[in-house]
Nucleic acid binder design. Structure first.
Lengths: 225, 225
DNA sequence: ACCTGAACACCGTTCAAGT
DNA sequence: ACCTGAACACCGTTCAAGT
């Protein structure tokens, strides 16, 4: 790591894969996924759009590499305590990461030059599954369910939030509209949706995420029937 | 429903929202999400790209409407038996639907002209949650976890499968490459990933999906600690 | 009222030409 | 070896003009 105290962008530095990825992350955070264009990125790097192709194969690889960098940073900086608490902490860290950087969504399952962002998550949570003394035969379903749940919910949450932002909707107003719509549904054909219409107004997505996580952890710990 | 025995496309019929959506579904199934362009669609309908805008606001609405149609059909044609079996049946039906029509992925959370595809799923599964005698206070977390899990995993599965198809990878070959990559990781820093490298070779995504579903259902039925 | 299709303002990617 | 930027083959969307 030869980089040191590079607070702002320096133009004199030559192009490099690392520098391109750093600029990509900045651009994605600043302008969102739609804002990442080769023209904007090359302008940010004070070069031409073609120059980037010397270091990176295409847009997919660019996104994947940015994603991998950001996931690794998050996992590495989340503390390890007791198994269940560590799983919760990592789950929430990833949830919050994707919430703040919704573009991570699109690239988390792809891999850039061989190693996928997924492995960082898999490893950390897998180690805790072992510590919970889950029998070897059930470790796979435990880990695949957990990781699938964490990524699945986090992704959806990010998409929803982003949708709200791009259509600049006020959250409570938005939920209110759904609640109203649901309570206007025919109570005979939609009795359940009707009955929980009010509940959606006060719900918190992050709390729901934790509740589901607890449900799964309870299932992992419960004796098989 | 005035349509009857319209086996192939008829040009004489005038344009309509319904006809456009039907053509959209056909085009999406035939050529995938990338294949849905206004130019291709208008050609399919023997008209110009501008004509579609008379009936539909934009591409988002087009996708949302196609998605809603296809979800409603699936939910309506899945049988209702015992609560747990019905939840499983619907979960799998949606899993398979998204697997077969991966484009559903992009639109399932949006809504077209007021009603979201989500409501169909919510209602059916919610009714079964009630029949399981889940206390009122826990119904919300149960339904949001279940629906979140079902959609989350199904979506990821569809993305993965689609990735495999567009890069035309042989599945077992692809898994083999991941397994090899994982087993080549440093066993000290990646002990867990290392240990399950073999497991990934034989795993079945649909089985994992069911296993996770069972874990959640077990958690829903288990007594709170 | 409904449809047409040229035109506009963008994309990702390529590639001859430069240094 | 690395960079430039014009050019290519596309997009979604608009809108004057037609019927």
């Amino acid at each position: 790591m030869p980089k040191r105290a590079a607070t702002s962008t320096r133009r004199e530095e030559s192009l490099s894969r690392e520098r391109i990825i750093e600029a990509t992350i900045e651009l994605l955070d600043a302008t969102g996924e739609a804002g990442l264009t080769f023209r904007a990125l090359s302008e940010h790097l004070a070069t031409g759009p073609g120059a980037i192709y010397w270091h990176i194969a295409n847009k997919n690889e660019l996104l994947a590499a940015a994603c991998d960098t950001v996931i690794a940073r998050t996992v590495d900086s989340t503390p390890i305590t007791t198994p269940e608490a560590t799983i919760r902490a990592h789950a929430l860290a990833i949830y919050d990461l994707i919430d703040e950087h919704p573009w991570v969504n699109s690239a988390i399952m792809t891999d850039s030059e061989g190693n996928s962002p997924l492995v960082h998550i898999l490893e950390r949570i897998g180690q805790q599954i072992r510590l919970l003394r889950v029998p070897k035969a059930q470790q796979w379903s435990a880990i695949s369910t957990l990781v699938g749940y964490i990524l699945g919910i986090s992704k959806q949450n990010a998409v929803n939030r982003q949708f709200g932002i791009t259509h600049n909707l006020d959250r409570s107003e938005f939920l209110d509209r759904i609640a109203t719509k649901w309570s206007q549904l025919d109570a005979k054909t939609y009795p359940f949706t009707h009955s929980i219409a009010d509940r959606i107004r006060t719900h918190d997505d992050r709390d729901d995420f934790i509740a589901g996580l607890n449900l799964i952890l309870r299932g992992i710990n419960a004796p098989a029937r």
